[in-house]
Design a protein around this nucleic acid. Structure first.
Length: 887
RNA sequence: GGGCGGCUAGCUCAGUUGGUCAGAGCACCUGGUUUACACCCAGGGGGUCGGGGGUUCGAGCCCCUCGCCGCCCA
């Protein structure tokens, strides 16, 4: 006998172990099976499972379990990302906390060894957490972006792109993070609105004939100014072009140049130009061949290019000092308050500086073209479609991608420098050496580039590097292109776009046929979850409290497209209850001898109720199948919830009770077999979303009746039921019974008929078919509606309460329990409902335009509706009249 | 400044191609010893679908406009 409740705590680890041991997570070897593959968005190896992971991985698991059950060779390839900056920071913090040497003190090799050590110890956290969620990844294929194989792929890609001139070294302005001491890409920069000032500085003209006023939010950069620009069309300054100003403090003459960048409308119309420390100024500098003076060191302190009294000052201290100096010199013209966007490093949180350095870049513009085309042509589909616009917008305006990072943890750039600075880009040091030998005619000492690659460079290769590329592996042939990528839209540029570019360039094929962007999870108030806000919901705590299935079902049900998920524990609790409901329905079946019949054929079933539930099962299975196949996860959850709770539990189980306890042995046996069959279908259909509970029920019902062809549910076959199983007549019959019982209950409740009362249900007026159905199902109706019998009478006796169901008049003789006023109120209310319905429909039917232009079936529908409402109204009115006659 | 998404019952959300589409869950109220389930059962109240305009015989659903809220890119 089943326990009263499912116990996730004990069952989950046991079941997961069974799945893994059974090898169910590996794709079938059957060569006839169609491949279906998903690569996981690799979580940071430093990470621990947050609610966003839980959602993302639940949806992937739903998909993969579904396709696996459909007989495909389903591969969900897991792995983790080395996450350059994040991981380096974690380990550095740990070293500091333990009072160890700093990274720089211990040196590169020792530090990297420490990180690997850390990875070995703690790197498995998140994958273990994925297991708790129930993720059916093929762990035998687990990858790490710094694996030897993936590293080889990275080197191959780097070298190939370099030789194709799609990757190059360049001296440009980068976003420099002075805290992390590395360049970061545009995407890693977060613009934050902050309060600041516009300082208006006067620069005296070199010839002493006056001054020119410029404004800046970053005064310290004036130390590196190399020009003042005015607009060539600006009449105010035309005569000054070609002259010079003397840069205060620095005491350096700099030219006044003409450049369109200067906007006459803004400020004074003149702008200071600091080519080495501002992206716009950099371009002005390039156009006008201005010197580029770098005034910062890597810590954003003033370097030797600044005036001696400024050297070594932090940028913000320098700012203060510059402003003070201008004030002293009498050249500070105005201080204006302003709110402006300031770039911050998304990891460090500090203000980043545009900084002139040598870095490696990828020619993203060129690589983007095929990636744009692939989406335009639908070879890769983005779901929801609306993301395609965002994708195109970004891809069509893409900038060179800075891929070098001044870190130690990551893929070291495979470039070696000769003594004269010549670059040798090769996959290995040996190859670089031989290239150098060829070039110099002798062996020379080479120095490898100190930098590592942006983490996203290796994740961009993920869909094919994980399958063995550049080797021509069997996995690559079978599972690439992957089928669906499920990911968050927050990394559409970081990751999805890069995979598209790299995948197409190196394999000639799209990396995935479909991308499904899942929603963002927020707290119950709609706020983004963050540790600082203290509103994070830990998925593992939720799993502990409600079970993995409840969390999974909640996330699935709320995963509607284009919307954020506001998660509340109430909702999870509700779905935990849903699991319990199903559990108890199975328990009921078990208690009532429901067991699989040998050779059971649902199409051969006789009983109306049984034929009906089989048809409903078929319809639900089609709806769930279509929903999951189309990434409509929330729809699948809704269908299952309704079918299992409302259709199966509320009606089928209730209506089956008289059959299961009644005298008709044949009907009883059939019902037992049907219930067992439906339950098996339910377990299969629900399994992708609630794998644990369904697997446990599957096991606990394994010995009830005929042996199933499948062992574990995880490996069972998905229901593919013929639409012939839907019996329209049975549907209509059960609909009548359901309507009669529902309406009857409503009447009893509204009139406060005591719960213990067992009046008869009178059939006053019904069609022959309706009468047959009501008579045949008298026992069922008696039990469900709690009436003593179903009796046919020509007229409703005095005091019987009539109600209309599908045009038939039924009545409950409950006069002794009720007060006439309550009944009168009820009748008046019912009649009013019909009256407004009639008015509504009449208005339509009275409109000649409607009759002339609406579809025939719509008109017919309205006519029927009118007739029904009028008939019901007439019956209730006559009841009301009789009531009034009595009273 | 440009773009995207949202605004439907007290709360969280469903509402395919415009025609029973005004729904569900939670919350609330009433009743319940119905031997599967109180993590339950039955019944009930509650919304002029953000405002305005338009297209249409007919509009949460299409178009325009305005207003909030959120996100992305400048």
């Amino acid at each position: 006998m089943l326990d009263k409740n499912f116990d996730p705590k004990t069952a989950e680890p046991r079941l997961y172990a069974q799945w893994e041991e059974s090898g169910a997570f590996a794709p079938t070897q059957d060569p006839a099976a169609e491949p279906f593959s998903i690569v996981i968005p690799p979580p940071n190896v430093t990470g621990s499972l947050h609610i966003g992971h839980a959602l993302n991985n639940t949806l992937q698991d739903v998909l993969i379990r579904f396709e696996r059950m459909r007989g495909k060779a389903a591969l969900w390839l897991p792995g983790t990302d080395h996450a350059g900056i994040a991981t380096q920071m974690v380990v550095e913090r740990q070293l500091a906390a333990a009072g160890n040497m700093s990274r720089r003190d211990m040196g590169r090799e020792a530090f990297v060894a420490k990180v690997w050590e850390w990875k070995a110890e703690s790197g498995g956290t998140i994958t273990n957490q994925l297991r708790r969620l129930g993720a059916s990844c093929d762990w035998s294929r687990e990858r790490f972006t710094l694996d030897e194989g993936l590293s080889a792929a990275v080197r191959k890609v780097f070298v190939t792109l370099y030789k194709q001139k799609l990757l190059y070294r360049d001296k440009r302005l980068v976003n420099w993070d002075p805290a992390l001491q590395t360049a970061i890409s545009d995407l890693e920069v977060e613009q934050k609105e902050v309060d600041g000032h516009f300082w208006h500085f006067a620069y005296p003209l070199e010839d002493g004939s006056g001054e020119i006023v410029v404004a800046t939010t970053r005064p310290e950069t004036m130390l590196g100014d190399t020009a003042v620009a005015v607009n060539p069309k600006d009449e105010r300054y035309k005569h000054l072009i070609g002259k010079a100003v003397r840069l205060p403090i620095v005491n350096r003459p700099i030219p006044i140049i003409a450049d369109d960048y200067a906007d006459p409308e803004k400020g004074s119309g003149a702008v200071k130009i600091t080519p080495a420390h501002d992206f716009n100024d950099f371009m002005v500098g390039k156009r006008n061949n201005l010197p580029m003076i770098n005034i910062f060191d890597a810590f954003a302190k003033i370097n030797e290019n600044g005036p001696p009294e400024y050297q070594g000052l932090d940028r913000f201290a320098a700012r203060k000092k510059v402003v003070e100096a201008f004030e002293e010199l009498g050249l500070l013209r105005e201080i204006e308050k302003t709110r402006h966007a300031v770039p911050h490093g998304d990891r460090s949180g500090v203000v980043v500086e545009p900084y002139l350095t040598d870095q490696w870049y990828v020619d993203a513009k060129t690589l983007a073209q095929p990636a744009i085309k692939a989406v335009e042509e639908g070879r890769t589909v983005l779901e929801p479609k609306t993301w395609e616009k965002t994708y195109f917008e970004w891809m069509r305006n893409i900038e060179p991608w800075c891929i070098s990072r001044q870190l130690w943890w990551g893929h070291r750039i495979p470039a070696w420098y000769g003594p004269d600075g010549r670059i040798f880009v090769e996959e290995t040091e040996a190859q670089a050496k031989s290239a150098a030998r060829e070039h110099y005619g002798r062996d020379e000492d080479l120095k490898q580039d100190e930098d590592v690659l942006d983490t996203w460079f290796s994740s961009g290769l993920w869909p094919f590097s994980t399958l063995g590329w550049p080797e021509k592996t069997a996995d690559l042939a079978r599972f690439y292109p992957t089928h669906t990528l499920v990911t968050g839209f927050d990394i559409i540029f970081y990751w999805v776009a890069r995979m598209m570019m790299m995948g197409l360039h190196f394999t000639g094929e799209v990396p995935f046929k479909r991308v499904f962007f899942n929603a963002l999870v927020r707290d119950a108030a709609g706020k983004k979850m963050s540790k600082s806000k203290g509103n994070v919901m830990d998925p593992l705590e939720l799993v502990d409290e409600y079970g993995a299935d409840a969390l999974r079902f909640t996330l699935t049900a709320m995963s509607g497209q284009g919307r954020d998920i506001k998660l509340s524990t109430q909702r999870i609790e509700g779905y935990r209850n849903f699991g319990t409901k199903l559990w108890n329905a199975a328990r009921f079946c078990q208690m009532n001898g429901c067991a699989r019949a040998e050779g059971f054929d649902p199409s051969k079933v006789k009983g109306v109720l049984n034929r009906w539930i089989i048809g409903e099962t078929q319809r639900a299975s089609v709806a769930v199948t279509e929903a999951i196949a189309g990434c409509g996860f929330d729809g699948a959850a809704t269908v299952l919830y309704r079918f299992i709770w409302n259709t199966f539990c509320d009606w089928y189980v209730e209506l089956s009770k008289p059959l299961l306890t009644g005298p008709d042995e044949a009907a009883k046996a059939e019902t037992q077999a049907v219930a067992a069959w439906v339950l098996d279908q339910i377990l299969k259909l629900l399994h992708p979303i609630m794998p644990y509970l369904t697997e446990e029920l599957w096991a606990q019902t394994a010995d009830l009746g005929a042996t199933r062809p499948e062992g574990l549910l995880v490996a069972a076959r998905w229901p593919e039921l013929s639409s012939d199983l839907v019996d329209v007549k049975a549907q209509a019959e059960i609909d009548l019974i359901v309507a009669a019982v529902t309406e009857g209950r409503s009447v009893k409740a509204e009139l406060n008929v005591p719960h213990s009362a067992r009046p008869a249900l009178l059939v006053i007026d019904a069609t022959a078919e309706q009468s047959t159905v009501l008579e045949a199902n008298a026992a069922v109706i008696a039990q469900t509606l709690r009436v003593s019998e179903v009796r046919f009478e020509a007229n409703a006796p005095l005091g019987a309460i009539p109600f209309v169901v599908q045009g038939a008049t039924l009545a409950l003789p409950v006069a002794e329990f009720i007060d006439l006023a309550a009944e009168k109120t009820r009748l008046v209310k019912e009649i009013a409902g019909h009256v407004s319905d009639i008015a509504h429909v009449m208005k339509k039917l009275g409109n000649p335009d409607f009759l002339a232009r609406a579809k025939e079936e719509v008109i017919e529908e309205n006519r029927e509706r009118l007739a029904e409402a009028e008939a019901a109204k007439a019956k209730l009115e006559s009841a009301l009249n009789r009531l009034e006659a009595v009273a």
